[in-house]
Computed example of a mutant assay.
Amino acid sequence: MVTQRAYKFRFYPTPTQKRQLAIEFGHARYVWNWALERRTKAYKAQGESLNTIRLSRQLTVLKQTECPWLSEATASCHTQKLRDQDRAFKNFFAGRGKYPRFKRRHQTQSVRYQLDQRHVAKNFNAESKLLKLPKLGTLKLKWSQRMGGIPKMVTVSKDPAGRYFVSMACEVEIAALPARKNAVGVDVGVKDVVVTSSGDKSGAPKYTYQYARQLKKAQRRLSKKKKGSQRRRRQQQRVARIHARIADSRRDFLNQQSSKLINENQVICLEDLNIKGMLRNRRLSKAVADCGLYELRRQIECKAKWYGREVLIVDRWAPTSKRCSECGTIQESMPLKVREWECPDCGTEHDRDINAAKNVLRWGTAGSAETDKARGAVKTPRAVA
């Protein structure tokens, strides 16, 4: 299968490269904010919509008159920011995103470079670990994975924790995994992030709770720093590093779980949960967000396309937790505090999550007809398992 695959590497810039990147980030941020202001004022005053081509012409005049210092940065980075904003407005008008906002200095900064495909061999070579960018020279990267293909664009970013990254996307051919004959049902939840119909439980690392004490201490110190001072900015970076450690740990855990499901099973059945609705529960929202349930489903679906697996989605209204997987009897209610229960009809003892995973597998492989039949008179959504 030929597809676009993204690669992200840690970047360790030299002091000279840091200074140049500070210029690139600052100029790109200025161009974004300048273009956003021009678009907003033009629409409010005259009902006129400005696009990238018209703004690019105005930007050229701006460089020649009011802001000659913009020439210190790479010109292609300015153009890419205008294109990014054009895409952001298209997403806004299509209902896929919010109205674009002005960028701040201490948020994530990024610039995108376009590689000249005529001379790309001089600037990029994955085998010899070579990458050169305009006005930056050779970059020192942590080549943590092998790359396939040749990128057309390279994005350099800096996160609030002060770390630099390089991202590239290439067209690669991914070989499908050997076909298997088994299928698995997956129930996700807070106590165990992944529970399979075969009885495997992943547990829940709860990284937010693991780092809660460090985060609380760092945020308390941040609240006492004077606004606008260098000490406050350094403390902000310390807080951002803790958040980055939590996010990286969670992402690594979810990658391990999704890869395990893809490698061991041909068909994966998932439940179509309302994640946004779960996050509105004031008692469970923090725990649900810490599990990364939406990211887990996204990874499974993406890897399934790459490696020739099949993902089946079960209706969110199906009573997976309160239905006996042996005889099919549906209980009237099943509170969250009930983790184990015995079926009054057949006497089978159930683990709540494993029983739900078995039902997900059955309804996922049986199709929508049996799911609609099993729903019956169910009128309320199932709570978070």
Results as ranks from 00 to 15, higher is better:
Pro151Ser: 13
Ser202Gln: 11
Arg234Pro: 00
Asn359Leu: 05
Lys305Asn: 14
Ala126Gly: 01
Lys226Ser: 10
Thr60Asp: 04
Leu62Ile: 03
Ala369Ser: 12
Lys129Tyr: 09
His119Ala: 13
Ile242Ser: 04
Cys269Lys: 11
Phe89Glu: 06
Ile262Thr: 09
Val288Phe: 06
Val239Arg: 02
Val61Leu: 10
Lys201Tyr: 02
Gly189Met: 04
Tyr99Arg: 14
Ala28Tyr: 02
Leu130Asp: 07
Val360Ile: 15
Ala377Tyr: 03
Arg234Ser: 09
Arg231Asn: 15
Pro381Asn: 01
Phe89Pro: 08
Thr74His: 13
Ser229Asn: 07
Lys44Gln: 14
Ile262Pro: 10
Ser71Asn: 15
Trp306Met: 06
Gly228Pro: 06
Gln235Ala: 08
Phe11Arg: 02
Glu66His: 11
Asn123His: 14
Asp315Ser: 12
Ala369Arg: 11
Cys67Gly: 00
Leu215Lys: 05
Lys227Gln: 12
Gln214Trp: 12
Arg352Asn: 10
Val120Ala: 07
Arg375Glu: 02
Lys142Thr: 12
Phe253Ile: 03
Asn182Tyr: 02
Ala374Val: 11
Ala45Gly: 00
Asp345Gly: 00
Ser71Asp: 14
Ser128Asp: 10
Lys373Gln: 14
Thr3Asp: 01
Lys8Ser: 11
Phe165Leu: 08
Gln109Cys: 11
Glu342Cys: 07
Tyr209Phe: 04
Gly367Pro: 05
Leu261Asp: 11
Lys129Asn: 15
Pro319Leu: 09
Val288Met: 08
Glu370Trp: 04
Arg213Ile: 07
Ser258Arg: 08
Lys41Trp: 03
Met153Pro: 00
Leu261Gln: 12
Arg232Pro: 03
Ile330Thr: 15
Arg238Ser: 04
Gln214Tyr: 10
Gln236Met: 12
Arg221Asp: 13
Ala175Thr: 14
Thr74Ile: 06
Lys226Leu: 13
Thr16Phe: 03
Val2Ser: 07
Arg57Val: 08
Ala175Val: 13
Pro344Trp: 08
Gln20Glu: 13
Asp290Trp: 06
Lys206Tyr: 01
Arg180Val: 14
Arg54Trp: 02
Ala204Trp: 01
Glu66Trp: 05
Lys18Pro: 00
Trp32Gly: 07
Ala204Thr: 06
Asp159Gly: 09
Phe253Tyr: 15
Lys90Arg: 15
Tyr43Leu: 09
Lys135Gly: 02
Tyr209Cys: 05
Pro381Arg: 05
Asn355Lys: 07
Ala161Val: 03
